[in-house]
């Protein structure tokens, strides 16, 4: 019963969001595209970080490969945008399959740091390649009209959320959660941990790459530093964790809430918005370490003691 209410609500929200471009100002639509792309990225991180428990700092690489894959396909090979998105996604998935084999053997800090290193290396490599325009980056053909990009971004969020919804109630998802909770036990119960982890990484890569491709064509300009920006990876993590990692809607809600707050603040002064972001992270980790999703689930039983209980559980 409750599940049906949530699903209905989600459909209504999605339909309302789809109608926004017909009533909103261009500035609002631009804000909406950024917000939706971040939601899709947070959701893609959720698959490898939230469900599988591997805190990846390399997802910005998938985004960057998607941006460049789409751009190179359109510029160097004269392919249409749609095909370009597929090219970007395929490159990212192949990269995830190869990279995953090597780095998904590492755990915890080591995995996080190794993926961070990979992101740095990729930025530097792309800044030095001829086909990617080196440091100067690439300029894509201009396509007027934010509406198409808005609807595409919204569709990506919906698809990503449906994928996560499928994962959450599938045998595959059970395997991922078992890996997150206890990898050795999962293996001894018959979960092919290596294949599952790599598969999760690849799905995450595909979604991130499409987001990168949409963004590249929308902005019409990409350069290595912004396309492979680790700060973007950090945003995905913060939004997913703020909303509730390992939940179906948490990352999307987290991305919407934080984007909105940050938009309001940065219209004042951007430095203050940055400072606020940092404070939100610190406060959220201390008082609601399992995100909004968990807060909503348990607040009615614990009330305000919820926050104190979280602190008590982890302090020394």
């Amino acid at each position: 019963m409750r599940a049906r209410v949530v699903v209905t609500l989600c459909v209504v929200v999605a339909v309302l969001l789809a109608g926004v471009p017909w009533i909103a100002s261009p500035a609002t639509i631009e804000f909406g595209i950024n917000m939706l792309l971040l939601a899709a990225l947070a959701q893609s991180w959720n698959i490898i970080g939230g469900y599988t428990g591997y805190p990846s700092f390399g997802n910005s690489v998938f985004y960057g490969l998607g941006s460049y894959g789409t751009a190179v396909a359109m510029l160097s090979w004269q392919l249409p945008f749609g095909v370009g998105l597929v090219v970007g996604a395929v490159i990212a998935v192949v990269f995830a399959l190869l990279l995953g084999r090597a780095v998904l053997r590492l755990r915890g800090h080591y995995f996080a740091i190794c993926t961070l290193g990979v992101a740095e290396v990729m930025t530097a490599i792309v800044s030095n390649l001829e086909i990617t325009g080196r440091n100067q980056g690439l300029v894509l053909p201009l396509l007027k009209g934010n509406v198409l990009f808005y609807e595409l971004s919204l569709a990506l969020v919906v698809v990503a959320t449906l994928v996560v919804w499928w994962i959450a109630r599938s045998r595959f998802g059970f395997g991922l959660v078992a890996i997150r909770e206890n990898e050795e036990a999962a293996a001894s119960m018959g979960v092919d941990t290596t294949r599952y982890k790599i598969f999760a990484f690849a799905i995450s890569a595909a979604i991130g790459a499409v987001a990168g491709g949409i963004h590249a064509y929308w902005i019409t300009f990409i350069d290595p530093v912004s396309a492979f920006d680790i700060g973007l990876n950090v945003k995905m993590i913060i939004m997913a964790v703020f909303g509730g990692p390992g939940s179906i809607l948490g990352p999307v809600v987290g991305a919407f809430v934080l984007s909105a707050i940050s938009e309001v603040l940065s219209s004042e002064i951007s430095t203050v918005a940055g400072l606020f972001f940092g404070i939100v992270i610190v406060v959220a980790v201390v008082f609601m370490p399992r995100g909004i999703a968990d807060l909503l689930r348990r607040f009615h039983t614990y009330r305000w003691r919820y926050f104190a209980a979280n602190v008590r559980a982890t302090r020394v």
Partner: peptide, 9 residues
């Protein structure tokens, strides 16, 4: 326990 049933023999 369902994990055992989903992935076992």
């Amino acid at each position: 326990v369902a994990v055992g049933a989903l992935f076992g023999t």
